[in-house]
Amino acid sequence: MSEKETSKFISLILRHKPEVVGITLDEHGWADVKELLDGMNHAGTAIDMQLLQKIVADDEKQRYSFNEDKTLIRANQGHSIPVDVELEKKEPPEILYHGTGEKYVDSIMNQGLVPKSRLYVHLSKDYDTAVKVGSRHGKPVVFQIRAGEMAQAGTEFYLSVNGVWLTKHVPVEYLEIIGRE
């Protein structure tokens, strides 16, 4: 399995299905590193601590974090299972962005941005990142979100350790399409 495939498998385990390698996450999404490595090796994915540290360090999206002594690991956000990753509530910038595929525009314009299978809606601080995210879903469309107005109206925002902004829902009235690539 390539390093990229191994990283995707770790993402599946830590965000959605820890049971595929026989582990459990604690209430904050942490997994025991030794149990993760043992479970992955038992499932046929050759991995050791050195490779795990390389994957965590090299991940361009900074998906994962270790605790201080590297005995625990977790995904920073994107979970479909209920965990509290101890997100820091923050005042957002006035404008944030959301990239998606063209095929989702009608649904978004009807119900706003909803987390679907995830716990939060993921927002970007810049346009280029939103385009990149949207490209994963087909022809990209970028929405501008008036996050400052939402916060003033009482919506809570969180900033993940890897710089992704999160919120529970973005109503239609705070959205505007600003780019179709």
Rank of each mutant, 00 (worst) to 15 (best):
S80K: 10
E91A: 12
D128M: 11
K116V: 06
K103T: 01
K103G: 00
S117R: 14
E88D: 12
P82D: 15
H98S: 03
K125D: 14
I95E: 06
Y127M: 04
V114P: 01
E88H: 09
Q111T: 11
Y127A: 01
M109C: 07
V131Q: 03
L119T: 09
K116A: 13
P82S: 15
P82Y: 14
V131P: 01
H122P: 01
A130W: 02
N110M: 15
P82K: 14
D128P: 04
I108A: 02
T100C: 05
K132S: 14
E91D: 15
I95N: 07
A130D: 10
K90N: 07
E88W: 00
Y120D: 05
Q111M: 08
S124E: 14
P93F: 06
G112Q: 04
V83N: 08
P115Q: 05
I81Y: 10
A130T: 10
L123F: 07
Y104R: 09
K103Y: 03
V121S: 09
D128C: 08
G99F: 02
H98C: 09
E88F: 03
E91S: 09
E102I: 00
T129C: 02
K90L: 07
V131G: 00
S117A: 14
V131K: 02
D106I: 07
V83P: 08
Q111A: 08
N110Q: 15
Q111S: 11
N110A: 12
H122M: 00
T100W: 02
H122C: 09
I108N: 02
P82R: 14
K116C: 07
R118V: 00
V105M: 00
D128Y: 11
S124D: 15
D106Q: 13
S117W: 06
G112K: 06
K90W: 00
T129P: 04
N110K: 15
P115V: 01
P92T: 08
L96P: 10
P82A: 15
Y104L: 08
S107P: 00
V85L: 01
H98L: 02
P93L: 08
H98N: 06
L123H: 04
L96I: 09
K89N: 14
M109Q: 13
K103Q: 03
V114S: 13
E102T: 00
Q111G: 11
M109P: 00
K103M: 04
V131Y: 01
G112C: 08
S117I: 07
K89H: 12
T129V: 12
G101Y: 05
K116E: 14
L123R: 03
V131N: 06
K116T: 09
L123M: 12
I81L: 15
L96W: 01
L113M: 04
M109T: 00
E94M: 11
R118H: 13
R118I: 00
Y127N: 11
L96H: 05
L119N: 10
V121W: 03
L96Q: 01
H98R: 02
S80Q: 13
M109G: 00
L119H: 07
S80D: 11
E91H: 08
L123W: 03
L113H: 04
Y97H: 13
K103P: 00
V121H: 06
Y104G: 04
Y97D: 06
Y97Q: 07
I95V: 15
V121I: 12
Q111E: 14
K132C: 10
V121G: 07
Y97I: 05
P115T: 05
D126R: 05
E102R: 03
S80T: 14
Y104H: 12
E94A: 15
V105Y: 02
Y104N: 13
L87S: 09
V83H: 10
K132M: 11
P92Y: 04
